[in-house]
Every structure is written in structure tokens, then in C-alpha cells.
């Protein structure tokens, strides 16, 4: 696999000490993965920050399961070094567009991930 891409030149103020994931990632997002699953992408532009998060052990299948009230077995969890990214996918609590669904594109379900504290 080739080396991860060049970091962005945009300045990012990164706390040296414990920091919420939202201040380290270039993008945290959620989206439908089809009508029946939700998927979360946590993406970095700096290999060092990606490694810091990976080494911390604070972003895991178990953490995502707990934040979204699921059993770990119901969470798909991936580390994607080529994209400097972590990914998690979960069953939708309600199918897309069902009468009680509240987020048709699944785009606003990531907020709980922002506050995960990375040492």
C-alpha cells in the first residue's frame, strides 16, 4: 500500500493533551448505507493524528456500540489506513423513510462521536 497522502496545509489547532475527537478529525460524518443501515466515517488529514487515535484504543467497535445502544456484534467497525479513516456501520433504528424515521439521509447521527476524548 502506498504511503498515505500528503497532509492538508490548512492549519489545525490540535491540543497536545486530551482532546475531543472532533478537534482531531478533518471530518466526522454519518450517512445512509442503503435504506437499512447507517454508516459513520471519522476521517483525518494527518497520519500522526490518525495514529494517535488508533493507538489510544478509545475509538473502537465497543465504544460505538455503547454510544448507539447496541451490542458490539451489531456494529461493523473498520480501520482504513489508506484513507486515514475509521468507519463504523450500524443497523438503522428505523428504516429510512419509515413513518417514525427522523433523518432521511442519515446525515445528522454522528454528534455523539465528536465528544469521544482521545488522550
Amino acid at each position: 500500500m502506498s504511503a498515505p497522502a500528503t497532509p492538508s496545509t490548512a492549519p489545525r489547532i490540535v491540543p497536545a493533551g486530551p482532546a475531543p475527537l472532533g478537534t482531531l478529525a478533518r471530518l466526522i460524518r454519518s450517512k445512509n448505507a442503503g435504506p437499512f443501515e447507517l454508516t459513520f466515517d471519522i476521517m483525518f488529514d494527518d497520519p500522526a493524528l490518525f495514529e494517535r487515535v488508533r493507538a489510544s484504543g478509545r475509538l473502537t467497535r465497543e465504544v460505538v456500540a455503547s454510544l448507539y445502544h447496541l451490542a458490539p456484534a451489531d456494529v461493523k467497525f473498520f480501520v482504513v489506513p489508506a484513507a486515514l479513516a475509521f468507519k463504523a456501520s450500524i443497523p438503522r433504528p428505523r428504516f429510512q423513510g419509515d413513518v417514525l424515521d427522523s433523518d432521511g439521509h442519515g446525515g445528522q447521527q454522528y454528534a455523539p462521536l465528536i465528544d469521544i476524548v482521545i488522550p
Binding site: K31, A33, M43, V80, A83, A85
Partner: peptide, 9 residues
């Protein structure tokens, strides 16, 4: 490859 896919691989 992450976008809108449940599995990136």
C-alpha cells in the same frame, strides 16, 4: 470508498 458503503473494503 467509504462513502455510503457499510463496508469500505
Amino acid at each position: 470508498s467509504l462513502y455510503e458503503n457499510a463496508d469500505p473494503y
